[in-house]
Design a protein around this nucleic acid. Structure first.
Lengths: 198, 198
DNA sequence: GACGAAGATGACCGGGCGATCAAGTTGCTA
DNA sequence: TAGCAACTTGATCGCCCGGTCATCTTCGTC
């Protein structure tokens, strides 16, 4: 991801990937409070190794979140080149939700100033383009902005997560409901103006 | 709330209310990880006093969450007696979101078996009644259940919370969008069946 | 106003956490 | 294959948290 100046040694590069994967799984399972010790155990390395790759826990989280942002941005840009604007937006929201299903990690911790903010802004731009195109095609109502959709990305997963015994695909139901709310047909005026960004 | 056998001493009752209020504020400000020490400080009592009123942190949280559930249930029941079914449902969602604006505390920690589960089920029943009436009146689409709306309660606040500099009333915008998605006009078939409860 | 019980308090404990560091090990290069 | 830098590691630190307890204070009652 980050093409740093010096190439990483072979074992170090392998451990770094192992750590990122383990951290992703552990954060998905235990939430943001997953301990560095557990992550190191899962990766099969010592705890101190984690801190030799990431200066702090926050930096580790930033690396994961940044990766998510970058991956989603790539998806959005690819979909921008497809034919059907409505299908493209719908597909993006589906891919995003499916990827985020693990944890809301993605959005909550993005407020600390860093490279992550830039990656988040990149995603915001890409999503806005997708939304502008869908709006121009009449697929979504006129008063919906890219920022609106950006904020709505993780809503379906969160909603389904409120259910104590949710089916793994329940979020698709709420995504469909929200998407219906975004469509022009039967749209009522909104009580609040669209949010600015950021 | 809990009409226990022995009446509380005057100072104890006052401290209990002080503690509940302080805990609510502290949890709202710092999230579920707010410390007992900070709560005690805010209430102006010693840390040990907290544990003389609530056996554990979980029990304190349960008391707060239970209070929210009970209050919302009362609101739902009252609205069930009003004239307009659509306005009643809309009003309920507004009141609920406005009250929850502080923290999602309400739903996340309700899975531990206790009296809270019962209060949550009471709320579920009351909301379902409100939804059934709105559906019968044609205000919402036929494939939406009480459980759906129950899960959707805290969505608007969560969505607005993803914005780094959100206007305090931004959640109203997303509530309106979601409510439009619940309306019969322009409804598309849902990809997933409604969830059972619980 | 005196007395007993209900309650409040500060000191304290055990544990888990993020983070550090000197010492040991391993991969790369010449 | 020798040597060095890059990397890993176990031990350890300081901190904060939830929770406990003996002791002291305060409320309610006669």
């Amino acid at each position: 991801m980050t093409s740093s100046a010096r190439p990483l040694r072979a074992d170090a590069a392998r451990n770094r990937e192992l750590l990122l994967a383990a951290a992703e799984e552990e954060f998905a399972a235990r939430g943001i409070d997953a301990s560095i010790a557990d992550i190191a155990d899962r990766a099969g390395v010592a705890k101190a190794t984690v801190f030799s790759h990431f200066a702090s826990k926050e930096e580790l989280i930033a690396a994961i979140v940044g990766g998510h942002f970058a991956a989603l941005t790539a998806v959005a840009r690819r979909l921008l080149a497809t034919a059907d604007p409505e299908a493209a937006l719908s597909e993006f929201l589906t891919v995003a939700a499916d990827g985020i299903k693990q944890q809301d990690l993605t959005f909550l911790r993005a407020d600390d100033d860093s490279r992550v903010t830039e990656l988040r802004n990149d995603l915001h731009v890409a999503v806005s383009a997708l939304v502008d195109r869908a709006r121009a095609a009449g697929a979504i109502r006129a008063d919906i902005t890219g920022t609106d959709v950006f904020l709505l990305i993780c809503a379906p997963v969160h909603i389904a997560g409120c259910h104590p015994n949710a089916h793994p695909d329940l979020w698709r139901r709420y995504q469909a409901i929200i998407f219906d709310g975004l469509r022009p047909s039967g749209a009522n005026p909104l009580p609040q103006p669209p949010p600015s960004w950021p």
